[in-house]
Design a binder for these strands. Structure first.
Ligand code: FES
Ligand code: FES
Lengths: 142, 142
DNA sequence: CAGAAATAGGATATAATTGTCCGATTTAAC
DNA sequence: GTTAAATCGGACAATTATATCCTATTTCTG
């Protein structure tokens, strides 16, 4: 469904959010350890998310990553930044564009699923996901 | 969502079905032309689908591909054969297994979308998709 | 100011996916 | 039987995704 980069990006963002809600800035190393991802690859993804204003990066000693508006940040913004919005907007059979006027054979049925995914991604905030981590009701790794 | 291989596989299967319903065996070259896919790559995918009893291949002159039970064949069987069933069964954040007892933060919401996709794939037959092609209401390429 | 800790970013390496090529084999048609 | 048309299958090539390494830069701390 999502690329590895996107999976890491979402998990990282949730972990950063969990800590930012406590005014706790976190480092790349800590993030990678907590979400069980390759450190340098995660660095690239976080740079990408920083360029897209999803996370804020602070350089230098005691630097790290923060997220300032986790209540407003939706999963869709992360997916779009990393994977493009094709997964929740594109044609399921890879036609260049999902076009109502020239639909592919699965269009009608696929559209429902895709809209469902789109709604979910657009209505799920980082904050609510981070709160479930606090609960201990969910996990970011094994 | 699906891999290129899977997209080609689905389109090929629909096109073969459309022709098999008319007792019309189709060749690799014709299939690739009709779904706008690379010929040799499509060959590999059809071999795979033949090994998985989705399509029947006939070798030799006047050979080609057929599908014998398009009413019973569901999209899920094609997706599973080519991409594995991870896309409609696996964890959205890439945890090794989607485990109700140790769910990831998006589990509750993602599960709904994924089940929706699963139902769709399991309840959509090649035959019904091929009939929409006959209609002219849908297309397999541009 | 010097040193340490941290991100940024370019270059490179590896793996997976996508795509191509070609000879072997099968089968129909003449 | 010979030939032509077709799939099969192995090897290869190109591209993209994933992952690593190293140096530069920034900034806190002492
Ligand atoms: S055209 Fe394929 S999903 Fe809309
Ligand atoms: S554990 Fe991630 S979707 Fe179920």
């Amino acid at each position: 469904m999502f690329s590895k980069a996107c999976e890491y990006g979402i998990k990282a963002a949730i972990y950063i959010t969990q800590n930012s809600l406590l005014n706790n800035r976190v480092s790349l190393k800590e993030i990678a350890a907590e979400i069980d991802s390759p450190v340098a690859f995660t660095a690239k993804i976080l740079q990408d998310l920083a360029r897209n204003q999803v996370v804020t990066s602070i350089k230098g000693a005691r630097g790290g990553f923060e997220i300032h508006n986790p209540g407003e940040l939706k999963l869709s913004q992360i997916v779009k930044a990393i994977d493009s919005d094709d997964v929740y907007k594109g044609c399921g059979l890879g036609l260049v564009k999902c076009d109502e006027l020239n639909p592919c054979p699965i269009h009608d049925k696929f559209k429902v699923v895709r809209e469902n995914l789109k709604e979910m991604l657009e209505n799920t905030s980082l904050k609510e996901l981070a709160l479930k981590l606090d609960d201990g009701t969910t996990v970011l790794k094994i």
